[in-house]
Design a protein around this nucleic acid. Structure first.
Length: 194
DNA sequence: TTCCCGATTGTA
DNA sequence: ACAATCGGGAAC
């Protein structure tokens, strides 16, 4: 029997447990212009028991990917303007996912600067919409597909992140369940959102 | 079918 | 502080 990988173990957990563990993991995507890689520095957990979650009112066509098993992508259009990317976690039938809010550019920085029309690397992916723009996500077509080399890949941290380097706070931009401390970010990182 | 509003961002 | 912009989902 195949032993599960570090990433698979994280993605099997409930979103609020997976979210802090995804800090330090890397997102990787191959594009025509070259490879892009970023290190995740900020996440938020969403769960069907949580009034702020898209899945709180049950399964719909849009949110169906969140009910898939861990390892699926959930991408949606925010405010009719920006795309946001989530990584689904947990068991099939449970609507939960981790929103990737911010990341540090690592590989393909010039490609991301072009995608964002922005040179300051601290302003490349310091927000969920900016992150998707940096990655070249311009539609929801990848929503519902699995993470992997052909879509968007998720790799274990290059260096271990100590648990005391991760801060938890209430989530940003929501109007329900505002006190739940389900936002996580890398302490002192200049790449987190504002 | 209508209507309200949002897991945001860039500009004034 | 505020507009841009559009699809989801509840209500009628």
């Amino acid at each position: 029997m195949k032993t599960s990988t570090y990433i698979e173990e994280i993605l099997a957990k409930p979103a609020e447990l997976a979210a802090p563990l995804l800090i330090g993991c890397r997102l990787r995507r191959s594009t025509a212009a070259g490879d892009i890689e970023l290190q995740i520095v900020e996440t938020e957990a969403y769960h069907q028991s949580d009034p702020a979650s898209h899945t709180f009112r049950g399964l719909t066509k849009r949110t169906a990917p969140m009910f898939e098993p861990g390892g699926v992508l959930y991408i949606y259009l925010s405010y009719g303007v920006h795309y946001c990317m989530n990584i689904v976690t947990g068991q099939a039938g449970v609507g939960e996912a981790v929103l990737i809010r911010a990341a540090m550019p690592v590989v393909g920085v010039d490609i991301m600067q072009r995608n964002r029309n922005q040179t300051d690397i601290r302003n490349i992916a310091n927000g969920p919409g900016k992150l998707c723009q940096a990655l070249g996500i311009t539609s929801t077509e990848l929503s519902g597909s699995k993470i992997g080399p052909k879509t968007i890949n998720l790799l274990a941290p290059a260096e271990k992140i100590e648990i005391n380097q991760i801060v938890s706070t209430p989530r940003i931009g929501i109007t329900k369940a505002v006190d739940l401390p389900w936002r996580f970010y890398l302490k002192n990182s200049p790449f987190v959102s504002k």
